[in-house]
Write a protein that binds this DNA or RNA. Structure first.
Lengths: 174, 174
DNA sequence: TATTGTTATACTCTATAACTATA
DNA sequence: TATAGTTATAGAGTATAACAATA
């Protein structure tokens, strides 16, 4: 490592601080392939478990819907528009907790693919009424079938009853 | 809106496709402050509920530990190092599911604040043995107290029993 | 004056690839 | 050759601020 790693701002400082005069405490080396490492306080933290679960669940969603190239947020936007045609961008953004600035780009890509259309609102010339196109409606139906498949993966992973319990517990966040 | 919005690549196309000849279907306007909007298929998707919950929980964690300027990932790194002194960067990255490239920067900032030190490994000159500094140990103790406070916020939000049930259900992901 | 959609910027996070030193 | 740490880059995602058109 020498040159590169030793010039590292901090590694050098650390080396000075504690030269290398240990031997006993550093026993955690044996193996350390990533399994037998304790998490201490992390176990018992809801946030950590939820973060890991969320990573897994999003990865499975993306993988399961890879053939149609739809990501979780795109799916949520299309689902809400499909269920509430005519919604403004502000309303969708608020409902889903997305920044309105970000929704602009999301809708750009969905409009490019002819899944969604922005129609000038008749009542407020500042806003757009969002609708699924005919193609978007057909596509969403397929997305929902794939999303249901993904949901079955979740049930397989944590158990059918646990999945339902989870949905109940977290219902207040939807 | 005219100029800016009408020149928008897609809005224009959409307007052409369906001029503005609607009136009935667009009823969803009334109010639309963000509450009375249905989610349709999103309700029943574990991923959506988990995402919303995760956002809430991380925001509360960040807020609760704002005084010490520690974010969830930094906390997890310090906790794992504290519980397993001497671990290599690879081992920490693997255990926490963090990219090793990202861990470099995380450790840089923790080392700058004198919470963590990278000590040259005695057995493998490529790797670093990670340790908490004395200051880091004291600091982590405080972080844990604040994290416990955050955890109480979670319990208040979803209920004590539900929080425990959640931890049980998601134990396989830690 | 406030709001809608838009653009732009910055910062975090994720995902890669490439490089050096070492094994 | 493979691995540990590092650097760099590109893409999402998040958080802001500012602007034009409109309310």
């Amino acid at each position: 490592m020498a040159s590169k790693q030793k010039t590292s701002r901090k590694a050098a400082a650390a080396a000075i601080r504690r030269p290398r005069a240990r031997a006993a405490n550093d026993g955690a080396y044996a193996g350390d392939t990533g399994d037998d490492i304790g998490l201490d306080a992390l176990v018992g933290h809801a946030g950590y478990a939820v973060r890991r679960f969320q990573l897994w669940i999003f990865q499975d969603f993306i993988k399961t819907l890879a053939t149609v190239d739809i990501r979780p947020t795109q799916y949520s936007v299309m689902t809400v528009i499909g269920a509430n045609p005519g919604l403004s961008q502000m309303a969708v953004a608020k409902r889903l907790g997305i920044e309105r600035a970000r929704l602009v780009h999301l809708l750009d890509s969905l409009e490019e693919r002819d899944f969604v259309s922005r129609i000038p609102s008749a009542t407020d010339r500042r806003s757009h009424a969002l609708h699924l196109t005919t193609r978007g409606k057909t596509a969403l139906a397929q997305f929902k079938r794939l999303a249901a498949e993904h949901e079955r993966h979740v049930a397989e992973k944590i158990g059918k009853e646990n999945r339902e319990r989870l949905l109940q517990i977290l219902a207040c966040f939807t």
